[in-house]
Design a protein around this nucleic acid. Structure first.
Length: 466
RNA sequence: GGCCCGUUCGUCUAUCGGUUAGGACGCCAGGUUUUCAACCUGGAAAGACGAGUUCGAUUCUCGUACGGGCUGCCA
């Protein structure tokens, strides 16, 4: 029996949840949830300068929209500072770490010189082997004693075995001179304390893993399973970042993509399960595995997102879709639908959801059922309406009075009516569409009649003929 | 500079030494059609480059090029 899986998403709250972070969170969520494990959320807020509560809120909101629910409380890394320091001091006491009194200026000067001479900028502290008696009364940082020979191999589930010479490792700082812990220490302690078994994160951390392993080893802790996933690049192939066209997850909600479509697209970006492209959450949960993750960076492709988005809208449950549309309107800062509109919308969803790629598009096509008489014509509709004489609509309306209100019968009736007037239904469709919806882009005329009902249909036609 | 990672159609990807290199999105052509969407048929489109290993390389190894990452008292 293997240990239950525990994964975590650990964003730093320095901005919104961008699309790359969202995918990392998704992968962690899928991996844990797909095997009955736990998915934890930890905010890496040890950088007090750059962390903001607004960013934390934005990240939480983004995750909520994507439906990535986490187990337990949100952990603040900063809150664990005392524990992190405790570990640093334990290492110090065990001789696995040491006090370094080199000043930042001193180190910076060393680096500048090394760089100028084209030499390694790896800083070797002279205090590593210093005698305690020689310690000055000055502020110091605590550095770990990293191994200086041999190699460290990161057994990565995505990248394979990555071996790094230990002489590339520096004695990284554990505790700053003000006594606060540094990220590299904090992640390791937190991941260990939280029982994280699988670390799935961006491959910008791949090299860090080697450094972090020295802490695991010094503490005698089990090393988690590593999975460093490639970053997402922008459409131009450049790294996607907050400064480079990366949008927050929430912006995609505002644009009207359904969360399910977003999850599907993001899951498929950098991960594959054979040729499966369009799948449900249940399938993703069942299929997701580390060995399906690709090693090269992927680019974000809006067209494909739209396609998947449309497919998900099409198969959405009506009631759920109705809810999601309201949530979308809130996110987009638009007025939500009142109960009557929302009810009508749900009744019309059957003929709406297969023709929209995004929620606003669906709403636009739902216009006919959201408005009440008199129907205002937009420019194109007005034109279509003008192309037919009022007489025809006047003539049609009475025939609807006793018509059987089913799709087939209405279709029959209108085709026959068109023929009787020496025209084709196609000629009639435009004006009818305009009369019923006031728009040129709508669901089928028959579906609109069905959804609107006989009375409303006749009233709108009469208005238009009027 | 040093170290690490990556490279299959425009894009996302399949392939785990032997395939006419498959699928999807997008694109082009045609069809259907009641607008939009959808749908049907067909088409163009890829193994970065160079060596090596092998009977045989997209697949394994090395080199080059290009891209990315790390190299902080940031995360």
């Amino acid at each position: 029996m293997s240990k239950p899986v525990v994964t975590r998403f650990a964003p730093s709250p320095t901005g919104f949840l961008h699309i790359g972070g969202a995918r990392t969170a998704l992968f962690n969520w899928l991996y844990a949830r797909g095997r009955g494990g736990k998915f934890l959320l930890r905010i890496e807020d040890t950088d007090r300068e750059r962390s903001t509560p607004e960013a934390t809120a934005a990240i939480l909101q983004g995750m909520e929209w994507l439906g990535l629910d986490h187990d337990g409380e949100v952990v603040s890394q900063f809150d664990g500072a005392a524990r992190h320091a405790e570990v640093a001091h334990q290492l110090l006491a065990e001789g696995k770490a040491y006090k370094c009194f080199a000043s930042q200026d001193e180190i910076a000067a060393f680096r500048d010189q090394a760089k100028a001479e084209g030499k390694s900028t790896l800083y070797r502290s002279p205090w590593r082997e210093a005698d305690e008696g020689d310690h000055p009364d000055m502020p110091y940082v605590i550095r770990i004693k990293a191994p200086q020979s041999g190699v460290t191999t990161i057994k990565d589930q995505v990248q394979g075995d990555v071996t790094i010479s230990n002489n590339q490792l520096d004695d990284m700082i554990l505790l700053r001179s003000d006594g606060t812990p540094v990220y590299m220490l904090a992640v390791v302690v937190d991941d260990h304390d939280m029982g994280v078994t699988h670390v799935i994160r961006g491959d910008d951390h791949l090299n860090n893993a080697a450094r972090q392993m020295t802490i695991y080893e010094a503490m005698g802790w089990d090393i988690p399973v590593w999975a460093h996933i490639p970053l997402i690049h922008g459409a131009d192939g450049k790294k996607l970042s907050k400064r480079h066209g990366a949008l927050g997850a929430q912006e995609y909600q505002v644009m009207g993509y359904p969360a399910a479509g977003m999850r599907n697209y993001l899951a498929r970006l950098g991960w594959s399960h054979g040729d499966d492209e369009f799948f449900s959450d249940a399938q993703a949960l069942e299929w997701f595995d580390l060995n399906g993750i690709g090693k090269s960076p992927a680019r974000f492709d809006t067209k494909k997102l739209e396609n998947l988005s449309g497919q998900h809208i099409a198969v959405s449950d009506d009631a759920a879709l109705r809810q999601e549309i309201q949530a979308y309107l809130v996110a987009a800062e638009q007025p939500v639908l009142n109960d009557a509109q929302s009810n009508n919308l749900e009744r019309a969803l059957y003929c709406l959801k297969e023709r929209a790629k995004k929620l606003p598009e669906l709403l636009e096509k739902a216009h006919f059922v959201l408005i009440s008489r008199p129907v205002e014509q937009d420019e194109k509709a007005a034109k279509a309406l003008a192309s037919v004489s009022d007489g025809i609509l006047d003539e049609l309306t009475p025939q609807l009075q006793n018509a059987s209100w089913s799709r087939d019968d209405l279709e029959m009736l209108l085709k026959t009516f068109a023929e009787a007037h020496d025209t084709k239904f196609g000629k009639l469709a435009g004006p009818l569409r305009a009369a019923l919806a006031g728009r040129a882009v709508t669901p089928s005329v028959f579906d609109m009649m069905l959804v609107l009902g006989r009375d409303e249909t006749m009233a709108r036609l009469t208005d238009a003929a009027g």
